[in-house]
Design a protein around this nucleic acid. Sequence first.
DNA 1: TTTGTTGATTGCAATATTACGATTAATTAT
DNA 2: ATAATTAATCGTAATATTGCAATCAACAAA
Lengths: 110, 110
Amino acid sequence: MGLAKTEMFTDEQNEISLFAKAFGHPARVSILQHLFKIDSCVCGDLVAEIGLAQPTISQHLKELKLLGLIKGNVEGTSVCYCIDKENWTAMKNVMTAFLDQDLKSSGECC
Amino acid sequence: MGLAKTEMFTDEQNEISLFAKAFGHPARVSILQHLFKIDSCVCGDLVAEIGLAQPTISQHLKELKLLGLIKGNVEGTSVCYCIDKENWTAMKNVMTAFLDQDLKSSGECC
DNA sequence: TTTGTTGATTGCAATATTACGATTAATTAT
DNA sequence: ATAATTAATCGTAATATTGCAATCAACAAA
């Protein structure tokens, strides 16, 4: 196909797109919202909550964990997941700076 | 494969993921940043700016336009693109509400 | 130990995305 | 009319993502 290499873009652009990609699937949005709603660790009721199979949820969790947005602690047979608030804040700062670009541009056009 | 249907998720979750998907590629992030930086219409120098072929850029522009984040006005042989600030603000409100979830959750865990 | 429970991993099949050469469409210049 | 310019579209190849059945690994309960 011809993949656009990350070298073509700035670190900031690559970082923004990586975070955005994590939110680019409703299942992951749903997982994150659930973790916030519960506001504590969730031990595996995500499969019941969302209507997807266990391996699928596990895969989505893995991606979110890899990005650092969530933490997973083993607790007996189950694993407890929760938001990594520190990393979430850092991500939010990056994304907010991107979304707030309009504040600096006053021009009208077209 | 088995696509997760949009009916499985809330309208909000689907909307967030659609916007996020638009930002999920560094080329589109780059296009949007450039449009903000210029702060006026851009008549097709995006291909020179970003290192991708003209059909590729055109395709990315189409997606952003379909989502309503940018506008394109035909002007002679060229087309002028700029941010649709009204829609950008609406998108920002949706995304910000999602990103700011952490403000409402005070709990410590794990 | 055996059984049950929970969640990760593997191995695929289905689908979506990305990139670009070639072409087309629309407009302008000569 | 012809040529030049600009950007959209088509067709297709390469790659990435998603979903899940099957399996595996770790631990707990009997």
